[in-house]
Design a protein around this nucleic acid. Structure first.
Lengths: 107, 107
DNA sequence: ATGTAATATTGCAATATTACGATATTAAAA
DNA sequence: TTTTAATATCGTAATATTGCAATATTACAT
């Protein structure tokens, strides 16, 4: 054994865990922060900024992107990544709902 | 290689990632929800409720506890776990700060 | 078409996480 | 003191994650 037993939890809980996982690595938090600080963002910029290899950054970007947190637009041979603010705030809202409902019930 | 390169990030970012990690597993989310629903909580109750073995639950409880999210009081041979609401709300507040500052800077 | 720069994918090694059986610990009960 | 019930820890197997070198892809420039 070793894998998470996802089937024993509700869909809602699993989604929440998946969302949290995106934020559970400092590289991804740094990337999100960095993207938000720029007007736009090119992957190699982040490589210089953060100090991980290009493939590793690319992999983290993929995780962030698959969570729906990026909007990308092509600019010549490079890609301009932008934060999908709507989706980002959706994440925030879901997490706050979890926090609020959980805390309010407590002894 | 394979381990996270924690030294290349700021203390703040690392702390945030550590916090998110607590919420990045459905079992831990379920445990937090379950604890908050009860007045008090005994580990074996959660075992029946969630469907993981007693050692596994105990391990997850340890992670949650090490994050400072539990208040425990002994009741005979069992332990009454309670959510540390103050700490919980501290988490919420930190995460919201990250979300707000990140989103507001964005293009 | 060929070269070049930017990004993605593949393959793999190192490490971390998850889960559980077996066992230890703890404290009340008999 | 022995038993019993609740929880923690240990050891280990399975799986996931992280990181990077090598390579592939993509799209512009020459």
């Amino acid at each position: 054994m070793g894998a998470s037993k996802l089937h024993i939890y509700s869909e809602e809980i699993n989604q929440m865990a998946t969302m949290a996982k995106v934020f559970a690595h400092p590289a991804r938090l740094s990337i999100l922060q960095y993207i938000s600080k720029q007007d736009s963002c090119i992957c190699n910029d982040i490589v210089d900024e953060i100090g991980l290899s290009q493939p590793t950054i690319s992999q983290h970007l993929k995780v962030i992107n698959e969570a729906g947190l990026l909007k990308g637009s092509f600019e010549g041979k490079s890609i301009c990544y932008c934060l999908n603010v709507d989706r980002f705030q959706e994440f925030q809202s879901h997490l706050n709902t979890f926090f609020n409902t959980t805390a309010s019930n407590c002894c």
